[in-house]
Amino acid sequence: MTWTVVARKEVAYASRSRMLQSLGAVLFGLIGLVTLVVWRVAEDPSAEALASELGVPLLLIVPIASLIAGYTAIVGERRSGRLALLLGLSPTRREVLLGTFLGRSAVVAGVVVAAFALAAAFSAVAVGSVPFADLVGLGAATVLLALAFVGIAVGISAVASTRGRAMAAAVGCYLVFTLFWEVIVTGVYYAVNRQLPGVEVEPWFFALERLSPMLAYETVSNALIEGELQSVVTVDARPPEVHATPFDEQVIGEVPFYLEPWFSAVLLLAWAVLPVLIGLHRFERGDLR
């Protein structure tokens, strides 16, 4: 099948990118550093603390690295003339897009898995044991996060007409999901209820919150690890008592299925798949130039 040829080409090509190599190195460095710091320097070293602290570099770097890995996937190939070369070798447009998405996802996922392997190795060296359950759980969730953002970026790439536009859209997505999401969701709540969300809130508010891949990731991770990820949410309009209140008490009424952690995992997959499918639709219909 030619999509495997495309995917393998993409893995070779993307993994040699200096930019991605640098980002990978930064992620490696930070994961290693945090691991060592938690085990050696922190007041209360534990698997909980490790998983929680790792959340910071992961949430900061993985989305950006994934977006960068993906945003040139199609538009860059189109503008450089490489797409013309590839399509002349008989893959269909579908195979090109899927192979490219898979190849780039594999590269980012590979870096994530390697970083977690590093954390495991450092843990073994620092304290003689490896918190497997937490690292595997967090690692799996992080891979899903990476796939989500690669999917978003590839979808953007398939639709954008220039690399500049693709980059702008990718940056915009990043800012919306990291900085503005809480503001937007709180704003919607206020528009509907004429008041800010309190300690107890209707379930749709949370559903809206968790549409963001970042928050979906936090939900999935927190379910898989002992403690809780250090959140990078910047605006929290809820009252401070929220932090002492367990989640199922925050939800007015029963906790619906769409607020279960597994649903957030599904949502992350949807973020990986849907933008790619939308991009595929446009890519298959249009002209090359």
């Binding site: 080409k9 090509y13 190939e77 490489r82 013309a84 399509l87 002349g88 070798l89 008989s90």
Partner: peptide, 22 residues
């Protein structure tokens, strides 16, 4: 029939690009 056609065709497009890292 694009797949079969391109299998039997050799294409040198204008402004063709190469994978600079390969």
């Amino acid at each position: 029939d694009s797949r079969e056609l391109l299998r039997r065709t050799g294409v040198l497009p204008e402004g063709v690009g190469l994978y600079e890292r390969l």
